[in-house]
Amino acid sequence: MTLQIDGLTKRFGGQAVVDGLSIDIAEAEFFAIVGASGCGKSTLLRLIAGLETADAGSIRLHGEPVSGPGLHVPPEGRGFGVVFQSYALWPHLDVRGNVAFPIETAGASRNDAARAADRHLATVALQPFATRRPAELSGGQRQRVALARCLAQGARTILMDEPLANLDPHLRGAMERELLAFHAASGATTLYITHDQREAMAVADRMAVMSAGRFLQVGTPQEIYERPASEEIARFIGQGVVLPVEIAQGTALIAGQRVFLRVLNGAETGPRSAMLRPSDITATDPGAEGAVAGRTLSVLYRGGLWEALVAVEGLAEPLPVHLNRPARAGEAIGLRLTGGWLLPEAAMAAKAPRRAAASAP
């Protein structure tokens, strides 16, 4: 196990910003933490890196304690590589010099450090840019220099705090692929902090949704997207709508249609909440037999599809629908409800264990 955190707590002004967190992260795992601004995710990363001192709990790295009661190993003693959104490159050094710097600092000769730097630049496909200064590089290239420098530090575990936040939207998709390629080539364990849920789902083996200093749910991106543990997670991750329903043997009557819901523990009965994603809703012609009548409130073109919000009589919230044709606000439309996810009862979610055991990526 690379990283083990148990009951970690940090308070500022008496308020717990990180509130008793426990998690195990496996060797070579890509683990993402996603949450809104102020949820405590960057403070958690700083605690792991040794930039903050914990008020309670413990951290073990490769089985060795680095934080606990009466113990605080400083950042330089933990061996993490850290990539911040600012990249923090030396502007007066070229790319090779930036990557070679930590190697020289560790005692290597200038020539040995340069040769080692070239090997790390090859990992991130930047050999042709070795003699350029950071100011001559694109944002994505500077990001890769920062990653290569982490490798040069000999870091087996890399911490990334919003590393793509400063990039243009069109570059982020390319950099997500770069990060995955880097992760595979380096074999390092990666802890990735972001507020962007799509980004987290794109790169992570597992991810945690964080709010108010706690993890609301830990799982694979597919698990969290398809089977959120609470209404808060369902509304935060992806597109969807949460509706109150009356359940009878795993089905619910929604807008006059009997809908079969995916359930956690077999047949359920009574009042509950159901989540519908766009994939659970199919658009058809208005007036089609068995279809629910709706009217579009808004339509956004997303390149290849149109995202619509559709009002349905009797439902408190509009349904998110993906269309394969243009539509106008106010247009009549038919809908078929093909499924949904029955959210676990609050009591069940509260009883879930706080420690999330690591699984193999």
Rank of each mutant, 00 (worst) to 15 (best):
L3V: 14
Q4N: 12
D6S: 15
K10C: 12
K10I: 03
R11H: 10
V17M: 04
V17T: 15
I23Q: 08
D24I: 02
A26C: 04
I33D: 07
A36T: 11
G38E: 09
K41S: 09
S42K: 00
L44T: 05
L45T: 02
R46Y: 06
L47K: 09
I48L: 11
E52N: 08
E52A: 10
D55W: 07
D55G: 10
G57A: 10
S58V: 04
G63R: 13
V66G: 11
P69A: 15
G70Y: 12
L71S: 01
P74A: 13
E76R: 13
E76I: 07
G77S: 11
G77C: 09
V83H: 04
F84M: 13
V95C: 07
G107W: 02
A108R: 10
S109Y: 08
R115V: 14
R115E: 15
A122R: 07
A122E: 15
F129K: 10
R133H: 14
C150L: 00
A155L: 03
T157D: 06
L164W: 00
M175L: 13
E176T: 09
F182I: 12
F182K: 10
A184W: 00
Y192H: 15
M207H: 02
A212I: 00
V218P: 04
E223S: 13
E226L: 14
F236K: 05
E246C: 13
Q249Y: 13
T251Y: 02
A252E: 05
A252F: 03
Q257K: 09
V259P: 06
F260C: 04
T269E: 14
S273R: 15
D285E: 15
L300C: 08
L300Y: 01
W306L: 01
V310I: 09
A311Y: 07
V312E: 08
L315Q: 06
E317K: 05
P326H: 14
A329I: 12
G330A: 11
E331T: 11
L337D: 01
L337I: 04
P344Q: 01
A347C: 01
A347T: 05
A360H: 14
P361T: 07
P361W: 01
